[in-house]
């Protein structure tokens, strides 16, 4: 890929050093890291509650529908919601910035 043999003139290293790219990385990590922390915490909360707090989880809310079942359904809801929110964010916010960075690499403007 790097046809340019001069040291220090590698286009990837040059692009990586630009504030725009730093910003792109920050944008990406700023979204996916907190989101990951959230869904893992939320999932393990559910796992721990269902194992260590059966009294609470097994309280019936109506009929035989328990708190735990609703909690379980909420895991589906949050998974679907995170998928939807991430896809929207990535399509609208992240992709244009990533495409712009890729275009700079093509035209070698650093």
């Amino acid at each position: 890929m790097s046809n340019d043999a001069r040291p220090g003139a590698d286009p990837y290293t040059a692009l990586q050093a630009t504030p725009e790219f730093q910003d792109l990385r920050k944008k990406f990590r700023g979204f996916v890291f907190p989101m990951t922390a959230f869904f893992l915490a939320w999932y393990f909360l559910y796992v721990l509650l269902s194992i260590f707090a059966p009294g609470f989880m097994n309280t019936h809310v109506f009929g035989r529908v328990s708190v735990g079942l609703i909690f379980g359904f909420l895991q589906f809801v949050t998974t679907f919601a995170i998928t939807f929110i991430y896809a929207r964010w990535a399509n609208k916010t992240f992709d244009p910035a990533a495409d712009a960075a890729a275009a700079r690499l093509e035209s070698k403007e650093f």
Partner: peptide
């Protein structure tokens, strides 16, 4: 640098 730039862009 190459890997990170390519992975994100």
């Amino acid at each position: 640098a190459e890997m990170e730039v390519r992975s994100l862009t």
